[in-house]
Computed example of a mutant assay.
Amino acid sequence: MKAVQVKAFGGPEVLTVVDLPAPRPAAGQVLIETEAAGVGGVDTLLRSGALADFGYEPGRVLGNEVAGVVSAVGDGVDASWVGRRVWAFTGMDGGYAEQVVASAETLVPLPAGVSAVDAVTLGTSGTVAHFALRHVHFARGERVLVRGAAGGIGVLTVQLAARGGAAAVAVTTSSAERGERLRELGATHVLDRAGGGAADAPASYDVIVDIVAGADLPSFFARLAPKGRMVVVGAMGGWPPADFGKEMIASFQKSMTFATFSADTVSAPDQRAALADLFAAADRGEVKAVVHEVLPLAQAAEAHQKMEAGEVFGRIALTHD
């Protein structure tokens, strides 16, 4: 079968299409004929070596989510899964391939109106967006800022915050054109990357969801209202400055909260339930899968180039003939 390996840490050019033996499902696993694989920001970090300290090594196949049809099951798995269209989480790797194995615990059936491409566009991004908002106890009527809103997690955070009754959903993004597209998804105020450019935007926020991190993170933390909560779910702009703690101490009397979030801390049953609800909402037209582009598996390097150039609005999906 065809798969895309990280031959060595580096730029997009290190992604190599290879022929590998078809995997076989072990106990508790299923085999999926891949129809689409999601391309996320974490993939670019794994490929570059930025997350090598977390145990990712060269020679592995990228991709943590796929959608397709179950073709076989391992021991202990209900055979009725065979032939069903599903979304699945593959872990840190494995998804950029024509066939993948995944734990049956991660499977979420797809409604008829949700395509494989839609599923991998909504999947991990929707999981992070949903549980990040829950992590900071977002409530109806609160003011929300989404930093780095044009990516996969960002566009879904905007939609879920608006759907959840936010009084305001401000976003940071790189262009007026992207800002208009975010307004169509529920944003009420569009800011530039530094957080300016909108005179009518709220002066402070109850909730900030940050997908960027980096050197400018402290200036956004300072925008929290008293008892405000900030959660960092990504680090596409790099790690926050080492002395960030000074900002937190300076705002001690405002009872503000800073948190990080990873979907790895959410149980499989809770993730499945949240995704089933999200897919059902997409099937009803209440949530939109924002697909930037669909590329063949062999063009995974091009997908990564576009991700790192900041060209992607929503998500890219990989498919194969």
Rank of each mutant, 00 (worst) to 15 (best):
G94Q: 05
T157C: 01
D206H: 15
T16M: 14
V77H: 02
L15G: 02
T157P: 00
V86S: 00
Q253L: 14
H189Y: 08
A139I: 11
I208T: 03
F252R: 08
V294W: 14
G238K: 03
V120H: 11
G10S: 05
T124D: 01
S175W: 05
G238L: 03
V169Q: 04
L297M: 02
F89W: 15
K254S: 08
T44G: 01
G74W: 02
K254Y: 08
H135T: 07
E177P: 00
G164H: 06
T265W: 11
L160G: 01
P25K: 01
F258D: 03
G310P: 02
T127A: 12
V17T: 14
W239Q: 13
R140E: 12
A167E: 13
T34H: 04
M92T: 14
E33H: 08
R272W: 06
W81C: 11
A119F: 04
S125W: 02
V120C: 11
A201V: 07
G154D: 02
A176D: 11
V117G: 08
A289N: 05
L110V: 12
V17H: 13
G83K: 11
H137L: 10
P269C: 13
R84Q: 14
W87E: 02
T44V: 06
E180C: 02
T16Q: 15
F89C: 12
F244V: 04
E13C: 03
A139Y: 11
S125N: 13
D321R: 12
V232Y: 14
R183Q: 07
V128F: 07
K246I: 15
Q159W: 02
D264H: 09
M92P: 13
R84D: 10
Y56C: 03
K288Y: 01
R147N: 13
A149H: 00
A36V: 11
A67C: 10
V86P: 03
A259Y: 05
Q159Y: 05
R229F: 00
V18I: 15
V287I: 13
G285C: 04
A168L: 09
E293V: 04
V312M: 06
G154V: 00
T121A: 07
T16S: 15
S219R: 14
F220R: 04
L182K: 08
A36G: 09
G55H: 10
A259K: 15
V266E: 07
A280D: 02
V169L: 05
V212E: 07
A201F: 03
K7A: 15
E105D: 15
V4S: 03
D243H: 12
P25L: 06
A317F: 04
E293H: 06
A67H: 09
V128W: 10
V17M: 12
A8P: 04
T173S: 11
G186H: 00
S251H: 14
V287G: 02
Q159T: 04
R24N: 06
L122Q: 01
A132M: 04
A235M: 11
D75G: 14
A22Q: 10
G11H: 13
P269I: 12
A176Y: 07
L51D: 08
A104N: 09
G165A: 09
L297E: 07
G196R: 13
I208C: 06
G310Q: 02
V82K: 08
S115Q: 11
S219A: 15
E247H: 13
